[in-house]
Simulated assay, not measured.
Amino acid sequence: MKDVVEESRNQPVLVDFWAPWCGPCKQLGPMIEKVVTEAKGQVKLVKMNIDEHPAIAQQMGVQSIPAVFAFVDGRPVDGFMGALPESQIKEFIARIAGPTPEEAGLEDVLASAQAAFDEGDVAGAAEIYAAVLQEDRENLAAISGLTRCLIASGELDRARQTLALVPPGKEADPLVAGAKAALDLAEQTADIGDLGELAQRLEADGNDHQARFDLALALNARGDREDAVNHLIEIIRRKRDWNDEAARKQLLQFFEAWGPMDPMTIEARRKLSSVLFS
């Protein structure tokens, strides 16, 4: 009661049910102790020998060992059985304990960089992201954030070099995928003609889908995302299969670059659905 139930009202407590004769327990024990130590006091570990305390194991419904239960606010909230790999133990403890103070501080720093970027202070945001990368060269939020800052500044080559810092196997992370889509869009629009010329072509022929497509890309590059979406939707409305459904595919690239929860992504998806399923 004192070491687990009462203590769990102050911090999460892990209870490791084990026995001296249990082989997997000997494998799990050192790993879980190591990960708890690395958590720097965010969780407490209590080891319970079921041979010495069979009644408690029975009360918790322990049918096989090793078995680990996490207590928070006086009650068990999660657990696992068997000897998990160290990476999964870390994920379990991180889920129970929440971010470390250092991680919480980093989240605040990254949030301030995003706020600066949103307010148009691209240089200030880039400076914060670069400072984070000096401490952690593999921080995906900082890599993607700095990439977007460089895109906004027109430094596409440096943006591509920054994106190359992404560790192998992390390319599919939503932050990274979004930054890459934004960079691809910027490179795609680098050689597009003058807006006025494209508008004149479109005024002369409303079915000049290439002009409308290029105009959409140019408008998005200049921040006019709503008109860009409307032009692509118009292509789909007039000729859905034009250029192997290029307009629909371009919209999907917009969505990836903007992020799934961006208001314009949500609105554009609604418009796209209304056209495709009308």
Score class of each variant (00 low, 15 high):
residue 73 D to H: 13
residue 84 L to G: 10
residue 141 A to V: 08
residue 9 R to M: 13
residue 207 N to T: 14
residue 204 A to P: 07
residue 202 L to Y: 12
residue 66 P to E: 05
residue 250 Q to S: 10
residue 104 A to V: 05
residue 52 E to S: 13
residue 112 S to T: 14
residue 259 G to W: 09
residue 88 Q to K: 15
residue 158 R to H: 06
residue 142 A to L: 01
residue 225 R to E: 05
residue 170 K to Q: 15
residue 266 I to A: 08
residue 196 G to K: 15
residue 168 P to G: 04
residue 32 I to K: 01
residue 243 N to L: 07
residue 257 A to H: 07
residue 231 H to K: 07
residue 114 Q to S: 13
residue 197 E to S: 14
residue 158 R to Y: 02
residue 271 K to N: 07
residue 238 R to I: 14
residue 61 G to V: 00
residue 134 Q to M: 03
residue 198 L to E: 05
residue 38 E to K: 14
residue 10 N to K: 14
residue 235 I to A: 01
residue 211 A to V: 08
residue 86 E to F: 07
residue 116 A to Q: 12
residue 222 R to T: 14
residue 45 L to R: 02
residue 179 A to I: 05
residue 268 A to N: 12
residue 9 R to I: 02
residue 233 I to D: 04
residue 96 I to M: 00
residue 105 G to S: 13
residue 224 D to K: 12
residue 10 N to V: 06
residue 144 S to A: 15
residue 213 F to V: 01
residue 223 G to Q: 03
residue 204 A to E: 15
residue 206 G to Q: 14
residue 1 M to Y: 09
residue 146 L to H: 06
residue 240 R to K: 12
residue 154 G to C: 05
residue 37 T to E: 15
residue 17 F to H: 00
residue 219 L to H: 09
residue 3 D to V: 04
residue 27 Q to F: 09
residue 277 F to N: 04
residue 52 E to C: 04
residue 165 L to N: 11
residue 111 A to S: 15
residue 255 F to P: 09
residue 207 N to R: 14
residue 251 L to N: 01
residue 64 S to H: 08
residue 221 A to I: 03
residue 108 D to T: 15
residue 129 Y to P: 03
residue 251 L to T: 00
residue 123 A to P: 02
residue 186 A to S: 10
residue 277 F to V: 12
residue 15 V to Q: 10
residue 277 F to T: 12
residue 34 K to W: 08
residue 228 A to I: 01
residue 266 I to H: 03
residue 78 D to G: 00
residue 53 H to P: 00
residue 30 P to N: 03
residue 203 E to S: 15
residue 128 I to C: 03
residue 126 A to V: 07
residue 152 A to I: 01
residue 248 R to T: 07
residue 150 L to W: 08
residue 244 D to Y: 00
residue 240 R to F: 09
residue 43 V to E: 00
residue 27 Q to G: 03
residue 21 W to E: 13
residue 264 M to D: 11
residue 40 K to E: 15
residue 149 C to K: 05
residue 42 Q to S: 11
residue 135 E to I: 03
residue 18 W to K: 05
residue 239 K to H: 14
residue 202 L to W: 11
residue 77 V to M: 13
residue 200 Q to Y: 09
residue 225 R to V: 03
